[in-house]
Simulated assay, not measured.
Amino acid sequence: MAEREGPRLDVPRAPRRTLLPAYDPDTFGRASERIARFLGTGRFLVWMTVVIIVWMGWNIVAPDGLKFDEYPFIFLTLALSLQASYAAPLILLAQNRQDDRDRVNLEQDRKRNERSIADTEFLAREIAALRMGLGEVATRDWIRSELAELVKDLEPQDRPGVAAGRSPAGSGERDQNR
């Protein structure tokens, strides 16, 4: 019996080459977050303002042979539009990643709160059980009250003259009579 030639089903295929560039989404996301974080700072606004002022000043004051963008500043408008067209998606990507992190954090907080509530309810039940159990246990105050009652019951027997064989004068007379 001849064995069949061709691809085997138990061996994975080698990765195919594609025309699309390969990239790591996490690395790209981290880079976009750094860019978005920088675009949202005062430092970026100051540098952008300085660049625009220098650009416009150069193209207004410089001699005609050295100007690269005449008065309507079409090249400056194109550069700012290009910067905005890249900044907006990068900012949105950074916001989406932050939303994902916030969602995960909220889910973890919710689970932690559920555990805390369950622990609190358990402890409340345990405290209630201990209080019910303490109702059957002799407390210090109860023992003191019982001892006080016993002392009251024993007091009439300790009065002078009441006890058998004792006289109010004391036991000294009895010794003399002997």
Rank of each mutant, 00 (worst) to 15 (best):
P15G: 01
P15T: 00
R17V: 12
R17I: 12
T18M: 12
T18I: 05
T18H: 14
L19I: 09
L19M: 14
L20P: 00
L20A: 06
L20W: 07
L20F: 12
L20G: 00
P21K: 14
P21E: 09
P21A: 14
P21H: 14
Y23V: 07
Y23H: 12
Y23D: 04
Y23W: 12
D24Q: 11
D24R: 13
D24K: 11
P25S: 05
P25G: 02
P25K: 05
P25W: 01
D26Y: 02
T27I: 03
F28S: 05
F28H: 08
F28W: 13
F28I: 14
G29R: 07
G29Q: 08
G29W: 01
G29S: 12
G29D: 03
R30Y: 00
R30V: 04
A31Y: 07
S32Q: 10
S32R: 09
E33K: 09
E33T: 11
R34V: 05
I35M: 13
A36W: 11
A36D: 03
A36T: 09
A36K: 12
R37C: 01
F38C: 13
L39W: 03
L39M: 14
L39K: 08
L39P: 10
G40H: 09
T41F: 05
R43L: 08
F44Q: 05
L45Y: 05
L45G: 09
V46G: 02
W47S: 02
W47I: 01
W47Y: 08
T49V: 03
T49Q: 05
V50T: 03
V50W: 01
V51R: 10
I52V: 15
I52S: 13
I53A: 15
I53K: 13
I53H: 03
I53S: 15
I53W: 11
V54I: 15
V54M: 11
W55H: 13
W55L: 04
M56K: 13
G57Q: 02
G57A: 12
G57R: 03
W58L: 12
N59R: 10
N59Q: 05
I60R: 13
I60M: 10
I60Y: 14
V61A: 12
V61T: 09
V61P: 02
A62V: 06
A62T: 02
P63C: 06
P63H: 09
D64L: 11
G65M: 06
G65R: 14
G65I: 07
L66S: 07
K67V: 06
